[in-house]
Every structure is written in structure tokens, then in C-alpha cells.
Design a protein around this nucleic acid. Structure first.
Lengths: 154, 154
DNA sequence: AAAGATTGAGTTCTCAATCTTT
DNA sequence: AAAGATTGAGAACTCAATCTTT
């Protein structure tokens, strides 16, 4: 393997290069797995990946309630994105909005019974697809190292 | 830690849950790092993350030439996305298009001298930001495990 | 004024359909 | 007909500005 090819060395020392190569592989892996997950869920359930993640996070709560902000943090989106995401869930009857009693600036999102059903159904597709996609990625020499390291954490 | 909370067990056995938790952390890490990288590059250089990745991949080639399709694979985007991405690079004079001589269905994207300069400049911001962002993520208890495992690969 | 959520404007991505060359 | 690239249409995200409540 060529360690210091062409003009890539200008930016810094060797440790940085390894770090960048590692991150490039993570990005490639992420793009690949997420696309497969998104396609599977969209085809079989007509919902987006972010929608599912929001539902799943809400379903983890016993009362099924979470602040918009907490939801945003949990699924890695900006607040404004979550506002629209929750809007999409609401028109489908999967969640509902509730104003905080104690601090009326805050808004809660609550998962409905139907929301819980849908979440449970998608969770199966999700688990199945994730498993298969990771297996497939592990067979790609370019990504095998990262997949192996991550799976060992489980 | 609660291993089998509420209705999460419906979907499968324990191994799947650990895998899903691991992947959720990867997604969170990815969102966080990529957003920081994107912001830093946009602010300091007025270019997007995908644009930089395309330039960097082209710069790795001695002749600075790559087929659209190869570029798409390399940066994890669909072909149609790359068509538009390359279009953006072209109007800024950072790349140029060339029809393949041997197979005129294919199109090459070529990095220009100016493209190489810009790439080199952004590479410094990129390395610096990536390092800092990973350090920061390593201090977040929720992500420390994944960051540690990935960094150990370097 | 600050915190929390929303809205407006703009960007980038995907899927499906199309065009060109083999 | 198939491969490679592009275009059209639409979805989802971000930033900045705004609105409401504290």
C-alpha cells in the first residue's frame, strides 16, 4: 500500500492520514447501510428512516412522551427538522402533540397506539435488514475492518 | 442497564438488540462529525463536504481523472447526484468534463490545477476539524466506545 | 433577553424516466 | 437491449429569522 501518495501529504503527518482513511470508510459504510435500511422500510412500510427512529425512541419511553428537543438530540437532527418530522408523523396519526403543563414553551410529542404498532412492525424489517446489510458489508474488503471492529462491541 | 425494556423485545433476540444499539451509536456519531466537518468547510471555504470528497478522490489519481461512476461509488452517492455534484464543481472551475475516447458513453471528470489547490487548502481544515470532532465525541460517554474502537484501527 | 419551537428560503439528495452510445 | 450519464419531480435536511413563553 502506498502510504504517502502524491499531494496528500501536504496536510499533515501520518496519524492524520490513518484517521482520515478510517473516517472515509465509516462514511462509506454509513451511506451503504443507511440506504439499504431506508429503502427496505420505505418499500415495505411507506415510512422514512428518520420517522422510524423517532417512533422507536418514543416507544422506549414508558409513557411514550418526549420533548422535541430531546428527540432531536436522540436522532441526530436539528430542531427545525424534527418539527417537520413530527408533523409528518402526526398527519399519519402515529404521534400527537402536547403542550408542556409546567413550561408552556416546550412541546411534547406522544406516540399513539397505532404508532406503537407501526413501530413494532418496522422494527422487524429494520433488524433483519441491518443484519443482512452488515453481513454484506463485512464481505467487502474495503469495509471489513470497520465492520469487524464495530460488531465486536456488541 | 435495562436489557429488555418494554416492547423492544418483540422484534428479536438479544444479539440483534446489541447490534441495533451499536448501529444507532454509529449513526449518532456520523451525524455529529459530518455536521461539524460540513460547517467548517462551508464557513472557511464556501464548499460542501461532498464537493471536497470528490476533489480529494480525484486528487488521489495521478492524472486527476475518474469516471463519473467510479466517483459515485467512491463517495457513496447515486450516479445522478454525482452528475449534479460535478456540475457544481465545473462552474467553479475546479473540474472539467471529458468524453471517454474509447467508450463514448462514459464521461470523465478531471480535476484542474485550481481544483488541486482548493483541495489542498480544504484538506487542512478537514484534518484539523476531524481530529477535534473525534476528540470531542470520545468525551461523550454515549459514543466513547465506538470512537475508541474505530480509532484503534488507525 | 433567553429558551423552545416553528416557518421561510435554499441546498442536496433520491427515484424514475429519458437520452446517447454500444 | 443494455450501459452510462443526465434530467424532472419530489423528499428531507440546514440555516437564519420569527413567534411564544419564561
Amino acid at each position: 500500500m502506498v502510504v504517502c501518495a502524491s499531494n496528500l501529504c501536504q496536510a499533515g503527518h501520518v496519524g492524520e492520514q490513518a484517521e482520515q482513511r478510517m473516517w472515509a470508510n465509516v462514511v462509506a459504510l454509513h451511506a451503504r447501510i443507511e440506504r439499504e435500511l431506508g429503502r427496505a422500510i420505505a418499500q415495505r412500510h411507506g415510512l422514512g428512516l428518520s420517522e422510524f427512529r423517532a417512533l422507536r425512541r418514543l416507544a422506549e419511553e414508558d409513557d411514550g412522551i418526549l420533548r422535541m428537543q430531546v428527540l432531536a438530540e436522540a436522532i441526530g437532527l436539528e430542531q427545525s427538522s424534527v418539527t417537520r418530522l413530527v408533523g409528518r408523523l402526526e398527519v399519519q396519526g402515529l404521534t400527537a402533540r402536547e403542550v408542556c403543563a409546567d413550561d408552556r414553551r416546550g412541546i411534547y410529542s406522544v406516540i399513539t397506539d397505532r404508532g406503537r404498532e407501526v413501530q413494532a412492525a418496522i422494527a422487524e424489517t429494520y433488524a433483519e435488514t441491518l443484519r443482512a446489510a452488515l453481513d454484506e458489508a463485512a464481505n467487502d474488503p474495503a469495509l471489513a475492518t470497520e465492520v469487524g471492529a464495530l460488531r465486536q462491541l456488541t
